[in-house]
Design a protein around this nucleic acid. Structure first.
Length: 514
RNA sequence: CGGGGAGUGGCGCAGCCUGGUAGCGCAUCUGUUUUGGGAACAGAGGGUCGCAGGUUCGAAUCCUGUCUCCCCGACCA
């Protein structure tokens, strides 16, 4: 077995945080902007986000939800209406107080004191209040319900500590908002969104997730119930990858969203909100990345196949390019995962071998290198990103299929790869979940070990509330652990609560989290 | 926001303690020879040392302030 020369300098097992950052820069996904907590998303990173948008947006529209757009700025008083909401977000809001700059006389600019806003505007951290305002105008009658809206937008939360994609001051997301006549209907919508996220994560992003309800202490500020999908990263930590909230009538009350029912009585609506963000890109990296960079699931890859002609800057290049272009056209004519295959013929000058490693780091699923000898034999040299190395020789594994057959097999390979990434991630997750820990000592022991991948623990608990829950949360905090969610469809509880010793009510996941 | 570390050509770093002509590696450009698996050699270009003040004849270096990034914590749908 020969040593493999990986495409990255940092290995996951040596320094996971450093590895994560190296993937982002080596795969050319994003970079620091110089503005605190804000990043520049580069074409490859943004292309992946665009794919996520496309696929999730298709699901949103298929569910009958319509897109709209609401303002970036929210009057401060909108926020004051929902007390818990204020508490939850007040500490992390960007505020606009002036609308004009003047020179300070020393070559600089300062806000013009004369141009102070009567009422400050906050930059939206989420849009419940401003959309609630609109909903209060749009909803009059029971016939206007349900009202189901989604917006794709940027939001700002002034976070203390930021990490690219995982927690940035400004991030991109979609937020769905709906108003319903009844609690049952609103809860059904909450679950619809949760299921949509689960399906998107698993089918499109190849990210296995646990869908479940967040405990009381982890609820969205102002929500009655918060549900999430949780994914396990390769370092064993949990990442909340999407949330769906049943808001009861709290926000309807605050924004005055009422309708006249069939009996003519004024009635409060029940509202719902749900969101998924660019954080998903971070989850993708930490789930599918390896020591050679990112591996993009084919459904999300901006380019699923990259063709690299081995150009020599000589007259014969023309014939080679022609050969490659026929290959490109044949592949582009194929359908994989329900869409035309996205293929790039990378004609940039430069050595094919150097470009190959660029695309490996970016995680393009299939790389096809084509040289003069391939052309003579009517074949291509194919490299699969998911099975890159021959561990015996320490060299990349090239296959040499016939050019025309190759085009036809691309869809199968891509769909195998899509499925393979999901299976691999799911197996890794299952191998790192413990379900046999029943007392706090064992829990502490499990997470105190030097183990690189402590993973998650599913425990049984009595679902305490209020102060008793606060005590549990405090205990877990000492172990740097958090309650993740109570999975749907889990086995009923049959033991005692690991925290209180009482009869258990349900099962809940405990993990370190991002 | 607390503790720690760091900002010097595109990237990674040395120089700072003890002030005196801004350096190295990679990358880039040009040339030559190579080239079917991450090329070699030679030459060249590129930086007012994060920013703003101060001390000094002289500041990357010393002092003050400030911004940004990384790690740990606190915080965080």
């Amino acid at each position: 077995m020969s040593a493999i020369r990986h495409a990255l300098n940092t290995k996951r097992e040596d320094d996971f945080a450093a590895w994560y950052q190296e993937v982002i820069s080596a795969a050319d996904m994003a970079e620091e902007s110089g503005v605190r907590g804000c990043m520049v998303i580069k074409p490859w990173g943004y292309g992946i986000w665009e794919r996520m948008q496309r696929l999730l947006d298709d699901r949103i529209k298929a569910a009958g939800v319509q897109n709209a757009y609401f303002p970036l700025f929210i009057p401060l008083k909108n926020f004051e209406r929902e007390a818990e909401h204020v508490d939850g977000f007040a500490k992390e809001m960007a505020v606009v107080t002036h609308h004009r700059l003047i020179t300070d006389g020393e070559g600089g600019l300062i806000p013009d004191p004369e141009a102070k806003l009567e009422e400050p505007l906050v930059v939206r951290p989420t849009s419940e209040t401003i959309i609630g305002d609109a909903m209060s105008r749009w909803v009059q009658s029971w016939r206007d319900l349900p009202l189901r809206i989604n917006q794709w937008a940027n939001v700002v939360r002034w976070e203390m500590r930021t990490r690219m994609f995982l927690r940035t001051s400004e991030f991109l997301w979609q937020e769905g908002h709906s108003a319903h006549a009844t609690a049952d209907e609103a809860r059904e919508e909450t679950m619809m969104a949760l299921e949509m996220y689960r399906a998107f994560a698993e089918e499109d992003a190849a990210l296995p997730v646990i869908a479940g309800e967040k405990p009381e202490n982890e609820r969205f500020p102002g929500a009655v119930e918060t549900w999430s999908i949780e994914a396990m990263m390769q370092d064993g930590k949990a990442l909340q990858a999407g949330t769906s909230h049943y808001l009861g009538t709290n926000f309807a009350q605050a924004s005055n969203i009422r309708y006249q029912n069939r009996e003519g009585r004024e009635t409060l609506c029940h509202t719902v909100s749900w969101g998924m963000s660019t954080r998903m890109v971070g989850g993708l990296i930490m789930t599918h990345g390896d020591d050679d960079g990112l591996r993009v699931p084919p459904a999300l890859a901006p380019f699923q196949v990259v063709i690299l002609p081995m150009l020599r800057e000589k007259p014969e290049d023309e014939a080679l390019l022609d050969y490659c272009d026929k290959l490109r056209a044949a592949i582009a004519g194929q359908t994989a995962l329900g869409e035309p295959v996205r293929v790039l013929l990378d004609k940039r000058p430069g050595k094919a071998a150097a470009k190959r490693w660029d695309w490996v780091r970016k995680g393009a699923p299939l790389i096809l290198e084509v040289g003069g000898r391939d052309m003579e034999n009517g074949v291509v040299s194919m490299l699969r990103r998911d099975t890159l190395w021959n561990t015996e020789t320490g060299k990349p594994v090239f296959q040499n299929p016939d050019r025309d057959l190759c085009a036809q097999t691309v869809p199968t390979i891509l769909s195998d790869m899509q499925n393979g990434l999901l299976v691999e991630a799911r197996e890794r997750r299952e191998a790192n979940i413990r379900r046999d820990i029943t007392d706090m000592d064992a829990l502490a022991e499990h997470f105190s070990r030097e183990a690189k991948y402590p993973g998650w623990v599913e425990v049984q608990w009595s679902k305490p509330t209020g102060d008793r829950l606060a005590k549990v949360v405090e205990t877990l905090k000492d172990l740097r652990l958090t309650l993740r969610n109570v999975p749907q469809n889990s086995l009923p509880a049959d033991g005692t609560c690991i925290f209180t010793g009482e009869q258990a009510a349900e099962r809940v996941y405990v993990a370190r989290a991002y």
